[in-house]
C-alpha cells in the first residue's frame, strides 16, 4: 500500500535543481508503513455561518479517528463548531509554475469590481 505523502505536491523535479536525496528519502518515508498513519488535512468552521477553513494536518488511522483527533488537537480553545477532514493524498493542487497563466488574466478585468463604476454622489444604496 503506497500512501502519497503530502510532499508529493511540494516535490521538486530533478531537472529544476531538486536533489536526488529527497527522492531517496521519499522512497523510505512513503512506504506507508503500518505504524505511520496517513496524513489528513483538517478544515474547521469556527462558527455557524462561516466557511470551513484549513486549520492544519494530523495523522489518523481512519476518518472517524481523524475527526476526533482534529477535535482534540484543533478545537481545544473553542475554535470550532464543525470539522471536515480529508486524506492529504486526495488534495490536488494547482501548479505554481502556471500561476501566471492561471491568475494574471484576471488582473485586467477591473470592470468586475464595483469601484470601477463612477456614479453621481446622489445615488445612495448601490
Amino acid at each position: 500500500m503506497n500512501y502519497l505523502k503530502k510532499f508529493y505536491y511540494g516535490d521538486i523535479p530533478e531537472d529544476k535543481g531538486g536533489s536526488n536525496e529527497l527522492k531517496d528519502s521519499s522512497k523510505v518515508s512513503s512506504s506507508g508503513g503500518a505504524s505511520d498513519w496517513p496524513l489528513w488535512e483538517v478544515f474547521i468552521r469556527s462558527k455557524q455561518g462561516l466557511d470551513h477553513k484549513h486549520a492544519g494536518s494530523l495523522h489518523a488511522a481512519d476518518a472517524q479517528m481523524a475527526i476526533e483527533n482534529a477535535r482534540d488537537v484543533y478545537t481545544r480553545r473553542m475554535e470550532g463548531v464543525s470539522i471536515w477532514v480529508v486524506e492529504s493524498k486526495y488534495i490536488h493542487a494547482s501548479n505554481p509554475d502556471e500561476a501566471k497563466s492561471l491568475y494574471e488574466p484576471a488582473e485586467d478585468k477591473i470592470y468586475r469590481h464595483p469601484t470601477f463604476y463612477d456614479l453621481p454622489d446622489e445615488v445612495k444604496h448601490m
Binding site: K5, K6, G10, S25, S26, S29, L39
Partner: peptide
C-alpha cells in the same frame, strides 16, 4: 511535525 512534512519528510522519519 506537520509543517516539516510539507517539506518532504514523514513524521516517522
Amino acid at each position: 511535525y506537520s509543517a516539516a512534512e510539507t517539506l518532504g519528510t514523514s513524521r516517522e522519519q
